[in-house]
Computed example of a mutant assay.
Amino acid sequence: MQPDDFRFSHALRVRWAEADMQGIVFNGHYLTFADVGITEYFRAMGQTYSGETGANGSDFFAVKTLLEYRSPARFDDMLDVHVRIARLGNSSMQFLIGIYRDEELLVNGEIVYVHADQSTRRPSPIPQVFREAVVSFERLMPEGVTA
């Protein structure tokens, strides 16, 4: 996985509270970094949680997270959180994540979200407006979007 495999990235600096006494980032914080990256991805795509993603009593819920640790980040490192949607199904989508320091891949992973009714948490189709925004942002061909 290379940085060029992603259309979007978001820079952030490791804060003191995210590192242990040796200055190494605690592993749980990488999921927060990924979440910040996904939030900024939505924003760059023009789809915020208060917009179409949460319309009509529905929302996206994380159902699977997988992170693979390759090398540690340290206090005060500048990181780039790379994000892309690798699969867009009827009611779910798979994000791929790459967290880099310069060109070095520190952590890679995937996060799967399901679009669902907020009260019942039962899956529902991803809104067409959101789907079109993803296809346009990622420059996916419609046939590249899986059902």
Rank of each mutant, 00 (worst) to 15 (best):
L106T: 06
L12C: 11
D77T: 12
I97R: 04
A86M: 06
E40S: 02
R101K: 15
R121W: 01
V63F: 05
A34I: 06
G57Q: 11
I24C: 04
S91R: 06
H10P: 07
I99E: 06
D5E: 15
M93A: 00
G98H: 10
F60I: 00
D76T: 11
D76H: 10
F60A: 10
V14R: 05
V107G: 04
G89W: 08
Q22P: 03
L96C: 06
Q118T: 13
A55M: 04
W16C: 01
Y30L: 03
N90I: 02
R15C: 04
H82T: 01
T53I: 04
S9M: 05
L106C: 07
D102G: 12
Y113T: 00
N90E: 10
E104R: 08
S92D: 12
T48S: 14
L66H: 14
A11H: 12
A34T: 09
P123C: 00
A73H: 09
V112M: 08
E68P: 00
V129S: 12
Q118G: 00
G28N: 05
M45W: 02
S92H: 09
D4A: 09
I126P: 09
F130M: 15
L105H: 06
F8Y: 15
Q94I: 11
R87M: 03
A11Y: 05
Q47S: 06
S50R: 13
S91Q: 09
Q94W: 02
G28Q: 03
P125L: 02
G46D: 04
R15S: 07
V36S: 01
F60S: 02
V129G: 08
S71V: 08
N90R: 14
M93L: 15
D20P: 11
R87Q: 14
Y113E: 10
F95I: 14
F6P: 07
G37K: 05
S92F: 11
E40P: 11
M78A: 13
R121F: 00
R13Y: 01
G46C: 08
R122V: 12
V14F: 07
Q47H: 01
S9G: 02
M78E: 15
V63K: 02
I38H: 03
T39W: 11
Q94F: 01
R74E: 10
S124L: 13
L106Y: 04
Y49G: 02
V107H: 07
S91E: 05
V129P: 00
E18N: 08
A19G: 03
N108A: 05
V25T: 06
M21L: 13
L67A: 15
R70F: 12
R74G: 00
M93H: 12
F75N: 00
G51D: 14
H115C: 13
E103S: 13
R43D: 10
L67R: 03
E104N: 01
A62D: 14
Y41L: 00
R7Y: 09
Y113G: 00
P72W: 08
F33K: 04
N56K: 08
Y30T: 09
V107I: 15
F6H: 03
L96V: 10
E40L: 02
P125C: 03
T65W: 03
F42E: 06
L12D: 09
S58R: 13
I97E: 09
S58I: 02
F130L: 14
R7I: 12
V14W: 10
T48G: 02
D59C: 05
N90L: 01
S9K: 12
S119M: 07
A34Q: 06
L66Q: 14
L12P: 11
